[in-house]
Design a binder for these strands. Structure first.
Ligand SMILES: [Zn+2]
Ligand SMILES: [Zn+2]
Ligand SMILES: [Zn+2]
Ligand SMILES: [Zn+2]
Lengths: 149, 149
DNA sequence: CAGAAAGTGTGATAATATAACATAGCACGT
DNA sequence: ACGTGCTATGTTATATTATCACACTTTCTG
């Protein structure tokens, strides 16, 4: 399973998210904040409909658009990432570091490591202007690689 | 639009696919072959349900599983790739060159360039064993970049 | 030929995501 | 405070993408 953040680092990540939004005049509303909490507390990538379930207990009986809107906001703010090949989402532990993100996803335990600010892929076709890159690596994390060796 | 292959290069790619399958004892059945043709003839990534439409004219009134099975086969054979961030598929112009694939997808005209042969193993986390990588770059191809400059 | 394995057909359904429109809350100039 | 517009949310319905389960056929193999 993904290494769950300690309660401490979870709340400090949330605090940083709050500050980031305040600084930019973005609104980290209750729904958005709750979705971010669910993402950060999870022990791996989370499916949109699981977030939906996660919101049920609270006051807002959320419907799909609610969750997808919150995810759109969080991704635009750089506070969450989509794992394209899994149709799942993760909270960004780095709270919106700049630059592209590179993900290492363990197929065995579900842990995800993020690397921000990856170097440009260098040999793009001549004249090509890259706006955004999706880079996801699948395999076994160091712990799982040792066990299955 | 994606640079459509000339009829010539399309049939030579198909011929190479046939040979590859023959060599490995894989069965490029009519359905599979037809799906590959549709992919190669398309001028960009193709959605599964568009392939379904494309199969309608023929004898097999295909249902979704038919198409997804054919795609699974083609991808395992290295004859097609999935564009994860678009939920779409492309025929491999290189007919199963080995190694990972890196895609350059023009958001303006839909053209796709493939690069085979692992680009850069990069600096994976220590101990990490990568099985498969998804690398997709979105932006503007050289032609479209010039126009929108 | 029998039996097994691989491929396909078919109907149903699951899982993921968006459209369209109504309502509510907040910002901002007056 | 008031009206006005903008942003966010609620709600219903639907679109899009993908798989399951089971029957049937074809192909391979002994
Ligand atoms: Zn991140
Ligand atoms: Zn692991
Ligand atoms: Zn290829
Ligand atoms: Zn282009």
């Amino acid at each position: 399973m993904r290494n769950m953040q300690s309660s401490d680092s979870l709340s400090s990540t949330l605090a940083r998210a709050e500050k980031l939004c305040a600084r930019h005049g973005w609104k980290l509303t209750p729904v958005r904040r709750r979705v971010l909490e669910l993402l950060l507390a999870a022990d791996g990538p989370v499916k949109a409909y699981d977030l939906l379930e996660g919101l049920k207990p609270g006051p807002g009986a959320a419907k799909p658009p609610t969750v997808y809107r919150a995810l759109d906001f969080l991704m635009q703010a750089g506070l969450a990432h989509k794992v394209e090949a899994l149709n799942a989402y993760i909270g960004c532990v780095h709270a919106a570091e700049t630059g592209g993100v590179e993900l290492y996803i363990c197929a065995n335990c579900g842990s995800v490591e993020e690397r921000h600010g990856a170097p440009a892929p260098a040999k793009a076709p001549a004249g090509w202007a890259i706006d955004r890159s999706v880079v996801e690596h699948y395999g076994r994390c160091s712990a799982c690689a040792r066990l299955s060796a």
